[in-house]
């Protein structure tokens, strides 16, 4: 077996393992929180309350308008200066859930706005309250419409977690860097990282397809 082959084989498991204990859990946790944040933000931004709209509008503006790496550095390296010291995991979860939450809230808000006004009017004229309309009529349609864009936000998040290497979290990319430093095989190792990301994300894309099919059964 050639030397490259041996290095590649030896590297698969350490990189994959980093994916399983850092990249995937971090992505899932951050995405779950981001979804909650996104729904609350989208609802606030379509509400009739000016102050609510303004507050959440500023949040979205800041997180969409600045690089996530900078956000990550502010939370992990900057906050201790203000007396808030967070471990790398906590800093990563906070940053990524707020960042993805901002993007996903825009996906959800746009989907809600894409639903014809007649749907609201029909539901309201039955005598439904605002929350009943949202829950029974708007939410199910929003899920279908927003699925592709929210999945995109999720995919961006998974790839974006590679930035946690720079705040000391040993994710796939960090492990790849460490192996490269030892073996001097950047092309081989980073390509291996890329392939593993691609596999993870392909699974997501497959799930998206299945979900879309399920959610669109009535169209």
């Amino acid at each position: 077996m050639s030397r490259e082959m041996q290095i590649a084989l030896d590297s698969i498991w350490p990189i994959l393992k980093a994916g399983l204990i850092v990249t995937i859990p971090l992505s899932l946790i951050a995405f779950a929180i981001a979804l909650v944040v996104a729904v609350i933000t989208a609802l606030a931004r379509i509400s009739n309350y000016k102050i609510l709209r303004a507050i959440f509008g500023i949040y979205v503006w800041i997180f969409r308008g600045t690089p996530v790496l900078v956000q990550l550095f502010i939370v992990f390296f900057g906050f201790p200066k203000a007396g808030i010291t967070l471990d790398a995991w906590t800093a990563a979860i906070i940053t990524f859930s707020l960042n993805t939450g901002a993007y996903a809230s825009e996906s959800i808000r746009a989907s809600i706005l894409a639903i014809p006004k007649g749907q609201w009017e029909a539901a309201e004229s039955l005598g439904m309250t605002y929350w009943q309309v949202l829950r029974r009529v708007i939410a199910p349609q929003t899920i279908r419409i927003s699925l592709p864009s929210v999945t995109n936000d999720f995919i961006d998040l998974v790839k974006g977690t590679s930035l946690v290497a720079s705040i000391t979290l040993a994710d796939m990319f960090m492990v790849g860097q460490q192996i490269t430093a030892r073996t001097y095989e950047p092309l081989l190792i980073y390509s291996l990282c890329a392939v593993i990301y691609l596999i993870f994300i392909s699974v997501l894309m497959y799930l998206q397809g299945r979900l879309e099919k399920y959610a669109s059964k009535y169209v």
Binding site: A122, S125, Y218
Partner: peptide, 17 residues
């Protein structure tokens, strides 16, 4: 709204039901 009901030009049925 409970004492009235409306039928619209564009039907406005709930497509997911």
């Amino acid at each position: 709204r409970q004492r009235t009901a409306m039928v619209f030009q564009s039907f406005n049925l709930f497509p997911h039901m």
